[in-house]
Simulated assay, not measured.
Amino acid sequence: MHGEYKVPGGKLVVVDLDTDGGALRNVRVAGDFFLEPDEAILAIDAALEGAPADTDAAGLAARIEAALPAGTVMYGLTAEGVAVAVRRAVARATDWTDYDWQLIHEAPESPALHMALDEVITTEVAAGRRPPTLRIWEWAAPAVVIGSFQSLRNEVDPEGAARHDVTVVRRISGGGAMFIEPGNTITYSLSVPDSLVKGLTFADSYAYLDDWVLGALGDMGVNAWYQPLNDITTDAGKVAGAAQKRIVSGTGAVLHHVTMAYDIDADKMLDVLRIGREKLSDKGTKSAKKRVDPLRRQTGLPREAVIDRMIDSFRGRYGLTAGQVTSEEMTQARELAATKFSTAEWTARVP
């Protein structure tokens, strides 16, 4: 069995092992990390040897920590990272490069149709009728996208939304409200097979699926990192928020979508969103205007150039071929947009 895991902000960990009699055997840990002293790698292998194959990541990490020689220094490596790689090996998880990735980047669509496309495309991936897909959104209208479980009246000021002609939609994933303006927002979705995130906790899967975009931002001179649970942040402030939804039909799939602030009209955002004092306090800021620091200022690049560089970065890592929404998928999405995502019953399902 073979498992790989890139430690968030760190290096790649590779684990090869067998299982015999319900235990881990012939465990070999490798990777491009740094580790001192030399014999620490043997201690890690020995700590994992014979462990019950169903030991969770926390239990495996504890075994590793207890076995490390005094004064061990890890750089780009953590005990938890090794444990996750082991769990992915045992679960027979797939890797990014196991797939032929498809890119969808098409004309602007309405907010409701974007919600529907996410559900349809991810369901098609789960059914095995579509390859893993990176979809870059283009927005036809300003919007507020609220999380699946958020209260509509607690999040959105209806008078402010009407004043700025902002459409309010509810997505299928959890998380918080996102304020969208077509020229100021970069949104993308990853629709991936469940096997890609096997062995990862729900929280770990966020960092794992965001890692490529951190590299893309780094190439643009932006020092970005993953901030648990679902933010991408920089030295200057938050630049993006992520959300996920598991699709359990077929062989299973994960929808991971991210909204990035390229630019922002903070006054308009505050007129439309009801942002409570408790939320601001939790983020350690006194003003909502300071919570998000747009990519326009940090990169100095046009929005289209940022998107092109993100696509090039993904293609360079994993391969990516141009695709499109099929006519069958678009038919399904238009029906779903009309019967679900444009209805008051769905949008106000949590009043």
Results as ranks from 00 to 15, higher is better:
300 G>A: 05
212 W>G: 08
310 M>C: 08
313 S>E: 15
304 E>A: 09
233 T>E: 09
259 T>D: 14
319 G>W: 02
202 F>A: 10
248 V>L: 11
223 N>E: 15
188 Y>Q: 07
241 G>L: 11
237 G>H: 00
237 G>P: 03
203 A>I: 14
295 L>Y: 07
331 T>K: 14
270 L>P: 02
236 A>W: 06
264 I>L: 15
259 T>H: 11
319 G>L: 04
317 R>C: 02
223 N>M: 14
300 G>F: 06
192 V>R: 03
286 K>Y: 07
314 F>S: 03
247 I>R: 06
201 T>D: 03
198 K>Q: 11
331 T>C: 06
323 G>E: 02
269 M>N: 02
214 L>Q: 11
195 S>L: 11
277 R>L: 13
304 E>H: 01
266 A>Q: 07
198 K>G: 05
288 A>K: 00
191 S>G: 01
212 W>S: 02
326 T>D: 00
281 S>M: 13
208 Y>G: 07
291 R>C: 01
239 V>S: 06
255 L>I: 07
295 L>N: 00
199 G>S: 03
280 L>V: 13
256 H>K: 06
258 V>P: 01
289 K>H: 12
276 G>L: 13
284 G>K: 05
244 Q>T: 03
315 R>K: 12
255 L>T: 01
330 M>I: 03
221 G>T: 05
304 E>D: 03
307 I>V: 15
271 D>F: 01
257 H>Y: 12
274 R>C: 11
190 L>V: 07
223 N>G: 06
259 T>R: 10
312 D>R: 15
316 G>S: 12
316 G>A: 09
246 R>Q: 09
211 D>R: 12
212 W>F: 05
312 D>L: 12
293 D>W: 14
322 A>Q: 08
322 A>K: 05
271 D>E: 14
285 T>L: 13
292 V>N: 00
261 A>T: 12
293 D>A: 15
312 D>F: 05
274 R>S: 13
307 I>L: 04
262 Y>K: 08
329 E>W: 08
219 D>W: 02
260 M>F: 15
314 F>R: 05
234 T>L: 10
224 A>F: 09
275 I>T: 12
301 L>H: 03
238 K>Q: 09
229 L>D: 10
